[in-house]
């Protein structure tokens, strides 16, 4: 497993809400005249805020001159967009074919039991969110689990506690 050096932008970040809104305004400005700007802007906004709250969608709708209904329609269509806050670490258990036939379901069950949440939910302390992934293209390493951008390979249910512990530690 390898730690990515990218700065985490999801939850618990240093940037304040006001800073994020200022940055969003800038992004909207940049994209305003580009065709097909809505999805890239939503992607950036989600990276900034960690999720897409109503006021952010409203800002984007007005900034890009798109009806709110259309913005809402797009957000609810794509599974990567979330309107509720997500955990600091989003755990995605791959349920692609290779991972499924090599035991992905057992890994998912173990995670649900350990975190006491089901798929789509976030732990009360907002550290972990649990999701199901549809193939990360790491089929040679099945079953695979992604925690943010880190890929964990050949995961067995017994390893879940150790994997979670790496992220529970206060980050330096």
């Amino acid at each position: 497993m390898v730690k990515t050096e990218k700065k985490c932008t999801c939850g618990g970040v240093a940037a304040s809400d006001a800073e994020n809104h200022a940055r969003l305004a800038q992004v909207i400005q940049e994209y305003q005249n580009k065709p097909g700007a809505l999805i890239p802007v939503l992607q950036i906004a989600q990276a900034l805020f960690g999720y897409l709250p109503k006021d952010v969608l409203r800002t984007i709708s007005e900034g890009l001159n798109e009806p709110y209904s259309r913005v809402f329609g797009v957000v609810t269509f794509y599974s990567f967009f979330s309107q509720v806050p997500r955990g600091k670490y989003v755990i995605r258990v791959c349920m692609g074919t290779a991972c499924y036939v090599r035991g992905g379901q057992a890994v998912l069950t173990a995670l649900e039991q350990e975190l006491k949440i089901s798929v789509g939910q976030t732990t009360p302390d907002r550290v972990f969110s649990l999701d199901v992934g549809r193939c990360f293209g790491a089929c040679g390493l099945a079953p695979a689990v992604m925690v943010n951008d880190d890929v964990h390979q050949f995961v067995q249910p017994g390893q879940i506690k150790d994997i979670l512990a790496q992220y529970r530690k206060p980050t330096a």
């Binding site: 349920m95 692609g96 290779a98 991972c99 549809r134 193939c135 089929c139």
Partner: peptide, 12 residues
């Protein structure tokens, strides 16, 4: 948009 689970050649 290589979405078929089990396919990773385009990614590679």
């Amino acid at each position: 948009d290589e979405g078929d689970p089990g396919a990773f050649m385009d990614r590679s």
